[in-house]
Write a protein that binds this DNA or RNA. Structure first.
Lengths: 162, 162
DNA sequence: CCGATGAAGTTGAACCGTCAATCTTAAATT
DNA sequence: AATTTAAGATTGACGGTTCAACTTCATCGG
């Protein structure tokens, strides 16, 4: 029953800013992508991760990790993307439990069409607000936070490149 | 039709970290609050903003601004909180278009009960990853981003205290 | 003082995400 | 080898969010 340590001024500012960014940024990007091709930021990230993967496919579990999503959420979304002809499911040859999600040619075309506008939106809503030092600081700080939320998060492997 | 400027290494790291934080952090806090009292982070923020307001009430529009939400979303949520007895709606005496949301005594008790655990969770998932300088940097950078997303965001008024 | 414009707010439908239950297959235990 | 345990994935129901349509009321220009 000890008194909790409330937030000091900087902590409060950092926290409130984070909450606002969390709400406003995905909303703005969702809107842009929805207008362009009726998909969400999450849909886009799924396609983007597949497009960058070797052979343009990944096991569902790995894809879930790379999009920070639950397997359940991913499964629903892949079903939707499959219905639009952008993704295919195939069984994994070596392990019958595993399903792999493959980006189709149509899916690749879609993301290539969408990428320039999306990158522009990320710049204008996010990166253009910041100096190069800010971006470097934010990368460092952001990865610390990600490490707190998930010690084994894949993006930490990427930048550590041991 | 000029070639888009793709993200450089730091930009990509900052952006990917932001996307992951955006997904994982609200999910973790939602889970904590949902276990404690069956409410979401957004519900909590609504109650928190009311509890900090003069007289424990705010017009719907102002409450929407302070929670970075659409009026529609807020209206649905206030209806839910009203059904639980934590919030009341009242007409505004001066302007008949305005509805004010008031925090009830039961609502106040609820947020006082919830606050210590929530602050602890914010610390352990977010702030404890960072040094004091990190927090200050993040506050500064975060407010820059918020300013990009919404020039007139209320949190910018708070810290400028001119 | 009257009509147009726009702000404040609500509502219902459609869509998305979460949770718990379930299924199949691999690995570990004995 | 049989049994148990855990990993990978899917599904349906439920609750939350968004979008568009609508209502009410204030304000501004004539």
């Amino acid at each position: 029953m000890t008194e909790p340590r409330w937030l000091n001024a900087d902590e409060r500012r950092a926290w409130l800013a984070q909450v606002s960014i969390n709400t406003l940024l995905p909303a703005a990007l969702d809107t842009q992508l929805h207008h362009a091709r009726k998909l969400s930021l999450f849909d886009y990230n799924v396609l983007a991760m597949l497009s960058e993967a070797d052979g343009r496919f990944l096991p569902m579990s790995e894809l879930a990790a790379r999009t920070s999503a639950s397997l359940s959420r991913l499964s629903h979304v892949v079903t939707k993307l499959q219905n639009r002809g952008w993704v295919e499911r195939r069984p994994h040859p070596g392990d019958a439990r595993v399903t792999t999600a493959h980006l189709t040619d149509a899916g690749m075309e879609t993301i290539e069409e969408l990428a320039p506008g999306h990158v522009e939106a990320v710049r204008s809503l996010f990166l253009d607000a910041l100096s190069a030092e800010d971006v470097a600081d934010l990368a460092r700080i952001g990865e610390k936070i990600v490490g707190r939320l998930d010690e084994d998060h894949w993006i930490l492997r990427e930048s550590k490149q041991s």
